[in-house]
Nucleic acid binder design. Structure first.
Lengths: 303, 303
DNA sequence: GACATTCATAGCAAAAGCTCATGAATTGAT
DNA sequence: ATCAATTCATGAGCTTTTGCTATGAATGTC
């Protein structure tokens, strides 16, 4: 057999109180059990730890040394328990995840804000990544999950759609524009438009879908960052061609989105997880927040 | 129940090997036992530690954190065991003891030398103390035992005589002196003598014994340190009046001791221990060495 | 000298731990 | 595609450990 923490607990108790009886009481066991545990410990260490008579319990020199080590181990044990409990309750920890660039800039800030409010001590490591890299990176890095637009099936991956936004024209709330329920892609040809560069995923999806119908988007401006497009739109330079989800209502209160139809295109925002891997409690909490916030957002956008 | 080292041992094994089966083999238990222990640990910490399928055992993030703590505790446990074993075998440790000034300077150096040869890693803390302080200091300080001349009975003290020396005249090995078997105290009156100061214990014993017989020692020189007396004797300044045991043969090869008689006085060198207190293994080893060396010395002095 | 306190030990009951046997899932080979 | 092999989980049964109660021995107190 080997030394046990139980023995050490009794040992430190006896060392401190100089009494087996008192230590036993502290630990909620009987004196005889404590006595036995001390004897076991002595036997296992091969050292006399206490000079005991019926009247006194004097620690030996060896006990003094052992005490320090024992205390350390016990406090480590307690620290471990506490730390794990904190992790379990998502009161501590770290969430490492991937986000596609668009999601990271437009959608996740509000999730982050909400999450930080409810879980102030959790460290967040959001890594923004090109949409194409989402899946490969998730398999190889230590990120626990990924949020972004990924479609299709992937081996060893779970995909769950958190929200999806219809491809929309985003413009200033003018009487004209606000009156529209939707716009067709064809109508856009007449108007100044701001779209994402053709290297971006959003744009590729648009171009593919349109060309399948023999159509083509000919934007007035092409930009890389979603925020740039929105800022330009707010300045009245044109309509931004983006999923409705990408419009942060709180940041651009003057802008509204109107779905584009013929064809109607939707762009999902998905949660990717590695199959068979449990998320850390902190990550679970974060994902829950994301689901909540984004679900709310879908309702908003559609209403 | 609480976390046990047993669980942690299995845990670290599984963490390292990424396999319950392999870890179980390493620890010499069955796979099912290991599986159970991991489940227990998870339950107690409230955290999932491994994502297990029949094919793989992947540590979670929490496991990574727990691993560090677990390893530390286990290595502490091992360190504790090893350290205690070393202490038990007197391969490590520290001996704290008291020695009366005379013993410390004349008798113990050779004990120390011998002990150091056989137990090189044991630290020695010898505290020299006035003979009167021997007993009071032993009760109050952390010294484990004391060596010196103490006579009588003391509460809670064990006294064991290690050796005893007859009060002798110590002088240079001249033909005259060497021829003598002994000297009487009366004869000393005619000769130049070097004695300890009257505050010292040795001197007090002498004065007391002689005055009981209506005699009196009238030394030519009085000194405080035994070594001084011997050095003076070696210079031919007179005969040193000391217990024969106080003559270190190796240091003063020119000197010899001849017992004083009428009355013949002996001065014990004793080992004092606190009753009911176990000596540390290191101290036991030291005491054993002292017994051996000093017993040998008695034989030498008497032969 | 009676009393109270404290540690040790023995007997017994309860709990925990381990092994064996078996089942389910998954991988790799034929 | 089926079969064999590997791996983890689970349940039954046995062994060991643990803890409690009761009692004894020693020691200090009034």
């Amino acid at each position: 057999m080997n030394v046990t923490l139980r023995q050490l607990r009794v040992f430190t108790g006896v060392y401190r109180t100089r009494s087996i009886t008192r230590a036993a009481r502290e630990l909620g066991i009987t004196q005889s059990a404590a006595s036995l545990l001390i004897q076991q410990l002595e036997a296992q260490l091969g050292v006399k730890l206490f000079d005991r008579s019926t009247r006194s319990v004097q620690p030996t020199l060896a006990a003094g040394e052992a005490f320090a080590a024992a205390e350390r181990m016990l406090s480590d044990a307690q620290g471990l328990s506490r730390r794990m409990r904190d992790l379990a309750q998502a009161r501590a920890g770290r969430v490492v995840f991937l986000a596609s660039a668009g999601t990271a800039s437009a959608l996740l800030p509000m999730v982050l804000a909400k999450f930080r409010a409810s879980h102030p001590d959790i460290e967040i490591d959001m890594r923004d990544v090109a949409a194409d890299d989402l899946v490969p990176r998730l398999s190889t890095t230590d990120a626990e999950f990924a949020i972004g637009s990924a479609e299709g099936e992937f081996a060893d991956m779970t995909i769950e759609t958190l929200t999806s936004g219809r491809l929309s024209a985003i413009g200033r709330r003018t009487a004209d524009f606000a009156a529209r329920r939707s716009l067709t892609w064809d109508e856009l040809a007449q108007l100044p438009t701001i779209a994402m560069r053709s290297e971006t995923r959003i744009r590729m999806q648009i171009d593919q879908a349109l060309s399948a119908q023999g159509k083509r988007l000919d934007p007035t401006y092409e930009v890389t960052l979603i925020n740039t497009a929105l800022a330009m739109t707010a300045q009245g330079l044109g309509l931004a061609i983006l999923p409705a989800t990408m419009l942060p209502a709180d940041q651009f209160s003057t802008l509204i989105a109107r779905p584009l139809v013929r064809p109607a295109l939707t762009r999902p925002v998905s949660l990717l997880q590695r199959q068979g891997r449990t998320l850390s409690p902190a990550a679970q909490a974060f994902v829950a927040t994301a689901r909540m916030v984004l679900a709310g957002r879908t309702a908003q956008a559609s209403g």
